[in-house]
C-alpha cells in the first residue's frame, strides 16, 4: 500500500504538469476549435525563459534561506509564465491571425502551427544549445522529504509542483467563471458571431486566451525544468501526453483538462503497481501502452471525454 501511494504521488506530480499544459490546448480549442500544435514550444520557451532569470539571481549549489527560495520559485513561475505568454501571443499573431483573417481552411492552421513549432524548437537550439539535459541551478534540496507518513513520502519539489499547479488551476477557474474576460472567453467559445454582435472584441479575446494558456504552459515549463531537465526538444512528448489528457477530460472543457491531466499522469505512474505487473513482462516500458489503452477505452464509452466538450463544437 505504501508502495502504491508513493507511485500515486509521482503520478500527481507528473499529472499536475500535464494538466497545466492541457489547459493551453483546451482554452485555444474552446475559442477557435483548433488544436494549437505549437503549444509544446510555448511550454519549452517557458523553461528557457525562467532559466535565464533564475540563473541570474541564484548560483548553483547555494542554499539561500527559505523565504528567498520561495521568492525564487515565484520568480521562476512568473518569468516562465511571462515568456510562455509572450511566445503564445506572438504565435497567435504570426501563425493564426493572418490565416483567420483570410478564412483559411482548418488544415492550414494545423500546418502553420506545426511549422511554428519546428521554428521555435530550432530557434531555442540555435540561441542556447542542443544538449538534451540542461538543468536549473540547484538552490534547495529537491529531495527533502517534507511529508513522511509510514513510508509514504512527498519530496519538496513534488510538493512545490502539486501546490503551485493547483493554485494556478484554481486561479484560472475563478478567472473564467467570475471575471469579465472570462465571460467574453466563454461567449466566444459558445458562439463567436453572436458574441461579436454583443460587442465582444473577438480578436482581443482570442489573443488573451492564447496569453492565458501560454502563461500556464510556460509556468509548467519552469516546474518541469526544475524537477527534471530542459532542452529545446523537451516539449514534444509531454505535450502529446497533455493533448491526450485534454481529450480524455473532454477537449474544450477547462475542468476536464485538469482532471484528464491528473488522471493520465496517475495512470502512467501506477503501471508498476498493477497486480499482474511482472518486470520484464508488463514493465515500465509499457507505461504508454497502458495509458493510451485507458484513453481509448474511455473514448469508446464517452467519445466526448469524461466531462464532455462543454465549451466547443465538434471540429
Amino acid at each position: 500500500m505504501n508502495d502504491f501511494m508513493n507511485f500515486v504521488i509521482l503520478g500527481l506530480t507528473r499529472g499536475s504538469m500535464y494538466a497545466l499544459i492541457a489547459l493551453g490546448y483546451t482554452l485555444v480549442y474552446g475559442v477557435l476549435q483548433l488544436i494549437n500544435f505549437a503549444h509544446s514550444e510555448v511550454f519549452m520557451s517557458g523553461a528557457f525563459g525562467s532559466y535565464l532569470v533564475i540563473q541570474s539571481v541564484v548560483t548553483d549549489g547555494s542554499s539561500p534561506p527559505w523565504f528567498a527560495v520561495v521568492g525564487i520559485i515565484v520568480l521562476g513561475l512568473g518569468s516562465g509564465a511571462i515568456t510562455g505568454a509572450a511566445v503564445a501571443w506572438s504565435l497567435e499573431r504570426v501563425a493564426y491571425r493572418p490565416l483567420r483573417r483570410r478564412g483559411a481552411p482548418k488544415l492550414a492552421f494545423l500546418i502553420s502551427a506545426i511549422g511554428a513549432s519546428f521554428f521555435l524548437s530550432q530557434l531555442a537550439g540555435k540561441l542556447f544549445n542542443r544538449l538534451n539535459n540542461n538543468s536549473f541551478p540547484t538552490y534547495f534540496n529537491l529531495n527533502k522529504h517534507v511529508i513522511d507518513i509510514g513510508g509514504v513520502t512527498v519530496s519538496l519539489v513534488q510538493l512545490i509542483i502539486i501546490v503551485s499547479a493547483l493554485l494556478m488551476m484554481l486561479f484560472l477557474d475563478l478567472l473564467v467563471s467570475k471575471t469579465k474576460l472570462g465571460r467574453s472567453i466563454r461567449g466566444v467559445a459558445e458562439d463567436a458571431p453572436t458574441a461579436a454582435l454583443m460587442g465582444i472584441d473577438i480578436d482581443k479575446t482570442i489573443s488573451r486566451t492564447f496569453v492565458i494558456g501560454g502563461a500556464l504552459g510556460g509556468a509548467a515549463g519552469f516546474l518541469f525544468g526544475t524537477a527534471f531537465f530542459f532542452s529545446n526538444t523537451m516539449g514534444f512528448i509531454p505535450s502529446v501526453k497533455a493533448f491526450a489528457a485534454a481529450v480524455l477530460g473532454g477537449i474544450g472543457n477547462i475542468r476536464g483538462a485538469m482532471l484528464g491531466g491528473l488522471l493520465l499522469g496517475m495512470i502512467e505512474a501506477i503501471v508498476p503497481t498493477f497486480p499482474w505487473y511482472k518486470p520484464g513482462f508488463i514493465g515500465t516500458a509499457w507505461t504508454d501502452v497502458v495509458a493510451f489503452v485507458v484513453l481509448v477505452l474511455v473514448l469508446i464509452v464517452r467519445p466526448s471525454g469524461i466531462l464532455g466538450e462543454r465549451l466547443g463544437r465538434a471540429a
Binding site: D3, G11, I237, P272, G280, G283, A285
Partner: peptide, 19 residues
C-alpha cells in the same frame, strides 16, 4: 530483473526509479 525505459519518450524517471 529486466526493465525498459525508452530513452526517446521517457522524460520523467520517477516511476522507473521507484520501481
Amino acid at each position: 530483473i529486466s526493465q525498459g525505459a525508452d530513452a526517446t519518450n521517457t522524460k520523467d524517471y520517477g516511476p522507473i526509479a521507484q520501481t
